[in-house]
């Protein structure tokens, strides 16, 4: 009886670890509700760079908004993501336009889904999980067809639960590889502060995202609405 009980405990722990591992990784990467500044740097094969600075907000698993601070030609633009819906607001020109996840408002290797990424556990489930002494090796499958990449191959550091490297796969082809670098203490939170993305489709191009001033902050749900996009600057403190 004792053996049966131990086997039950062992199995239930195994299932628990597998189903909750993605949520644990999400929790390690960001608080439930936070603000941050991010610098996106597109690096061309000859080394020339173009930089964007965004003020970003996230609440829960599926609400993300951003406001462009730089360059001057993009200042005041805002993006919003609510689950699968994405909008782009261009001040003075038009009302918010619906945009797609595979396109990029910044150019370069990062697409809109990379910049306004939802929690991994919101979009993916673990299809296969292996491990060695240092890392988990996860194969993730998209929960539905609207998710940008149908599969992710993720290498996760066991001790920190930080992703180390992610291959993004669509139509059986690895489109890009994201590396999580330079863990940094943001005061009440620690996570990798640099994401480097290389694309197999754009050889020699690289995009880097640097996180700064990431801190927990509560927002009303109404901040993440289409009509509020033009007023996002008011939320900055």
């Amino acid at each position: 009886m004792k053996v049966v009980f131990l086997v039950f405990i062992f199995l239930s722990n195994g299932v628990h670890a597998k189903t909750n591992l993605l949520e644990d990784i999400d929790k390690k990467l960001q608080p439930d509700s936070y603000e941050s500044y991010r610098k996106l740097i597109n690096i061309e094969p000859d080394g020339t760079k173009k930089e964007f600075v965004l003020y970003m907000l996230k609440k829960g698993k599926d609400k993300v908004a951003s406001l462009f601070m730089s360059p001057a030609s993009d200042k005041g633009r805002a993006t919003l993501r609510l689950v699968d819906n994405m909008w782009l607001y261009i001040p003075g020109v038009a009302k918010p336009l619906r945009i797609s996840s595979m396109q990029s408002v910044t150019g370069g290797v990062f697409n809109n889904a990379d910049i306004m990424r939802l929690d991994f556990s919101e979009e993916y489930q673990i299809e296969k999980q292996t491990e060695d002494k240092t890392y988990y090796f996860l194969e993730l499958k998209a929960k539905n067809e609207t998710v940008t990449y149908e599969k992710l191959k993720m290498k996760v550091e066991k001790s920190s639960l930080f992703p180390i490297e992610i291959d993004c796969i669509a139509n059986g082809i690895t489109l890009k590889t994201i590396r999580y670098l330079d863990p940094k203490d943001f005061g009440d939170f620690k996570r990798p502060s640099v994401l480097e993305t290389t694309s197999q489709l754009q050889k020699g191009f690289k995009s880097v995202m640097i996180f700064a001033k990431m801190k927990k902050r509560e927002f009303k749900d109404e901040v993440f609405t289409m009509e509020y996009m033009g007023k996002l600057g008011d939320i900055r403190q």
């Binding site: 500044y37 240092t134 880097v208």
Partner: peptide, 26 residues
């Protein structure tokens, strides 16, 4: 040692890109 080495190897790779976030204060 491996984790420590990898952390050291990662940090600093993009230090030269800099991010003067204070200049974007409201």
């Amino acid at each position: 040692a491996l984790i420590l080495f990898s952390s050291v190897a990662y940090s600093g790779e993009y230090d030269d890109l800099g991010f003067d976030v204070e200049s974007f204060e409201k």
